[in-house]
């Protein structure tokens, strides 16, 4: 194993280091304050409940099983979303034919409250039944 030695490239990085020194560091300290999100960022999942028809396409296509549909008959259903399972891939947005479910460019905050990990997105379940049901699921 022979290695040749080229003296003219002895300290090849020196000019680059000089450039870097003139330019200043590209890393920053911890950025306290508002985070700047990229324009295409897929964040919090939201819904326009009046548009949802409970077709279940988002439920079927969700790769992380993060949306569930409880239904009884045509107009009696509840769409439940689990943020802890969500992969924020925006597949539900693509699958929805009515533009009901969508993701917005907002940061997803962390939470330590378990009840925040079950979000009822659409509730078309008559009130009297739902109270009894919710006690069981929680």
């Amino acid at each position: 194993m022979k290695t040749r030695f080229y003296p003219h490239t002895f300290a090849y990085l020196l000019p680059h280091i000089w450039r870097v020194l003139c330019k200043g560091a590209c890393t920053v300290g911890f950025p306290f304050g508002e985070a700047k999100l990229p324009s295409g960022y897929r964040g919090v999942v939201k819904i326009k409940p009046e548009l949802c028809r409970g077709c279940g396409l988002c439920v079927r296509d969700c790769p992380a099983f993060g949306i569930e549909l409880e239904r009884e008959g045509r107009d009696k259903f509840r769409l439940i979303y689990y943020p802890d399972r969500c992969a924020y891939c925006s597949q539900c947005e693509t699958s929805c034919n009515f533009g009901a479910i969508y993701q917005v460019n907002e940061f997803v905050p962390a939470t330590d409250r378990p009840d925040e990990l079950r979000v009822v997105l659409v509730d078309r379940w008559p009130e009297e039944d739902s109270t009894a049901d919710e006690d069981q699921t929680d």
Binding site: I17, V20, L21, K23, A25, C26, T27, V28, G29
Partner: peptide
């Protein structure tokens, strides 16, 4: 070294 490598250090 950090400054040479374009870091803060």
């Amino acid at each position: 070294i950090a400054r040479f490598q374009e870091r803060v250090g």
